[in-house]
């Protein structure tokens, strides 16, 4: 609980809309408390901008508890900043030394076009889920929850994959802007649970087809995605996705092209 306040030089990406070229703008900021979260520091900047009549910096954020996946800043070359396992909203200014220069950019990926400033459009993720990231069970048709025992190991492993918050840091971290970790998390969760078996093969194929159609890059097993994932979703899920996809393409009964989800 340090009492002193700090000064920083912020280099923030400003871009009016998707068609604007955009560029960095420098903002010195002082009176920053080390107990502030990174977003509260941006709030402070925006508050000052609003008072002087300049348009505040637009950025996505909401829960500020690290779970909604809305916040998405690329800070000093890292999605969600310097720490592992942390979203931007849970990053605090005590992590930045006094007088530091801090560069803030939006996620950079063809499949995530910039909406304005630091806000990007991640609807591609929704479409990938729509392509097959579910178990087809209508409301009311479920059987008793304890009818099928699931070993604790499997339940825990499924949970680890399901912890994905859909923020897109994996894409932003990847030199190829690949969405493999995001897709793998959902495929892996449902592939190992008994409830996911009926659609297991089709799911892997459909989600991968949608991922490719969205313009995400290929996976070259660099591992930056897991290293930067705020929920620390591991590479084993990508391995499982590869296995699921390969197995499905050898043995599935799906023929022809998949109906892709349109924008």
């Amino acid at each position: 609980m340090a009492e002193e306040t700090r000064k920083y030089t912020l280099e923030i990406w400003r871009q009016k809309n998707a068609n604007d070229k955009g560029g960095f703008k420098t903002y010195p900021i002082d009176d920053v408390s080390p107990d502030m979260s990174f977003l509260e520091m941006i709030d402070l900047l925006n508050d000052r901008l609003a008072r002087t009549g300049e348009e505040p910096v637009t950025f996505d954020h909401d829960c500020r508890e690290g779970i909604c996946g809305a916040c998405s800043m690329y800070i000093n070359g890292h999605p969600h900043g310097p720490h592992q396992g942390v979203t931007t909203c849970q990053l605090h200014m005590r992590s930045f030394p006094n007088n530091a220069k801090i560069v803030v950019e939006p996620w950079r990926a063809q499949a995530f076009p910039v909406v304005k400033d630091l806000m990007v459009d991640r609807a591609a993720f929704d479409r990938i889920i729509q392509a097959g990231g579910y178990v087809s069970v209508n409301t009311g048709s479920a059987r008793d929850a304890n009818e099928t025992p699931i070993s604790k190991e499997i339940a825990d492993e499924a949970f680890n994959a399901a912890a994905c918050i859909g923020c897109g840091a994996c894409v932003a971290a990847c030199k190829n802007a690949s969405a493999m970790l995001f897709v793998a998390a959902k495929v892996s969760q449902l592939a190992i649970l008994p409830q996911g078996q009926a659609e297991r093969k089709a799911r892997a194929e459909k989600m991968v087809a949608q991922m490719d159609a969205e313009g995400f890059g290929a996976c070259t097993n660099t591992g930056a995605c897991s290293a930067e994932c705020p929920k620390e979703i591991g590479q084993e899920h990508i391995a499982r996705l590869n296995r699921e996809f390969l197995g499905a393409s050898l043995s599935s009964k799906n023929v022809g092209d998949f109906k892709l989800i349109k924008q």
Partner: peptide, 11 residues
């Protein structure tokens, strides 16, 4: 319903 959807409750 939630279990059928693949919600990984603690076990």
């Amino acid at each position: 319903q939630c279990v059928a959807q693949g919600v990984p409750f603690a076990r």
